[in-house]
Design a protein around this nucleic acid. Sequence first.
DNA 1: TAGTGGTCTAGACCACTGG
DNA 2: CAGTGGTCTAGACCACTAG
Lengths: 238, 238
Amino acid sequence: MSGRLPKYKQIQEELRYQIQQDVYQVGDLLPSENEMCAHYGITRTTARKALEELQREGYIMRRHGKGSVVVERRNSLGLLTVKGFSDVAGKAVRNIMVAKPHVASWDTSFVFTPSPTEEAGDCYRFTRIRCVEDDAVLVEVSWLDCGLVPGFDKQEFVNGSFFKTLSQCYLIEVLGSEQELQAISAQGTIADLLGIPVGSPILYIAVRYLTNKSGYYIYSKLYCNTSKYSIGNRFLSK
Amino acid sequence: MSGRLPKYKQIQEELRYQIQQDVYQVGDLLPSENEMCAHYGITRTTARKALEELQREGYIMRRHGKGSVVVERRNSLGLLTVKGFSDVAGKAVRNIMVAKPHVASWDTSFVFTPSPTEEAGDCYRFTRIRCVEDDAVLVEVSWLDCGLVPGFDKQEFVNGSFFKTLSQCYLIEVLGSEQELQAISAQGTIADLLGIPVGSPILYIAVRYLTNKSGYYIYSKLYCNTSKYSIGNRFLSK
DNA sequence: TAGTGGTCTAGACCACTGG
DNA sequence: CAGTGGTCTAGACCACTAG
């Protein structure tokens, strides 16, 4: 097992949890790097790494000469982070499997063209709807090479999570993703699943996930009704 | 002058330039960390910092035990990086000022509400269109507090760049941004400026830029025609 | 001025990829 | 196996912020 997390990650997650639990509230300063060193018995390099990651995740803002300030978290869809859709702050999220994984052929009408190795064989394909408080906000169609995940159509999802299943059952880790965003008009099935009129503007996101199995990708098409929940994003430079 | 760039930044920019110039092509390996240490006379920490930044920018992909691989750059809008819209790989980008900076009142119909300090006074407002090869793809309406940039309506843009002007004339640095994305239908003026039929689905992005002047922000509304150029994005974890 | 984060050095051990 | 990147230590000097 690769098992144990690096120290900086453990500390990062502990701090993130404390922010989520309001131990540190918006505007508060996190402990300084030196205080963290003393508290955890680590060096500044490790403390900094944890804090830099938290900044990248949008939980804090670091200011030279001042410290690490907890920043306001927006009430919008978890977005585009690598692992996809997860937390809409404080709201109940539900997933509905519309079409269970089944063998299909590759869809070619797509921004990302499958690699030749992939296109030669079949793929598994499945469709889910993501709801926030009973509003269907996202239709997600995903597919991946059959060779990558043998028996995937008979495999139960671990905790209902696709990525957890990949990691725990197939040792596949997602290293990153590429996305293309477009505004389009909702058509038949999609409009239907989202419960909106045909022709409504929706956000279409084509995603290609990079995995640790080189040459193999995971593809998703997301159709998102942004009328109630917009897609939030935060970037911090420096 | 704060002037000189840190070593890691210099190296990062040198490598990025070499990738852009095809000195290193897609699929190529960059020099290893140890090779870079020897070549530049630095330590691994510094070399790593440069490479991590390049990875974050989406130029390379780092693989444990293998090296730093140059990855394919997408042919889509420069996107959502902090400094906004810049390079559409290899295409001519042109900006048209539709409405020069002028004094206006705050727009309240907005995802981000101005802070009380801001709302008390007036603001400067201006509108630009961004074209890629003669296609208008983006309408951008920006505004910011009058107190932040005195005389902004009489100020020529440095190199036509809003951010350069802020930095060089007003010592304002952009530290990051928050964005909300939505798919909407194009209405009158916007449809007109983009040269598309009313009702066409477009991408609407509300942006709030964080600056080094605390309490002051810069706001933008982007209306983007994604039918020809989609918005590209890349995330790499770990 | 004291304390903070930003940069950097010079090491070390480990886990992973490839031949 | 040799070489790579991932993590970590124990220092250092500097620029920035705030009282």
